[in-house]
């Protein structure tokens, strides 16, 4: 059986994504604003313009970070 789902890691948690899903689509699914979140994919920071171009691959490690209170 051919699955059209792939497993990725988002902020350290396993998550299923669709084959060929763009990073920007993952952000919309998570209801995150791409202007307020920085995305690191396999230790490489993605520029905002790349979010809709880069497609997720099986085993991808995605880190979604933002600013929080700190000293």
């Amino acid at each position: 059986m051919i699955s059209d789902e792939i497993e990725i890691l988002v902020n350290g948690q396993p998550r299923m994504a669709r084959v060929g899903q763009a990073v920007s689509e993952l952000l919309s699914e998570l209801e995150l604003d791409g202007r307020l979140v920085v995305v690191e994919l396999n230790r490489q920071i993605l520029r905002r313009g790349e979010l809709s171009e880069v497609k997720l691959e099986p085993g991808d490690r995605v880190e979604l970070v933002n600013f929080v209170g700190g000293g």
């Binding site: 948690q13 307020l36 979140v37 880190e63 970070v65 933002n66 600013f67 929080v68």
Partner: peptide, 30 residues
Amino acid sequence: TVAVRRVDLDASKEESLLHWLDPEEFFVLP
């Protein structure tokens, strides 16, 4: 100053820190 951390994916949607700390009003230092 602000810290850089993972987005909390489980939290109910809170306002982002920058909603409160308007970069037009404050110089934000990560």
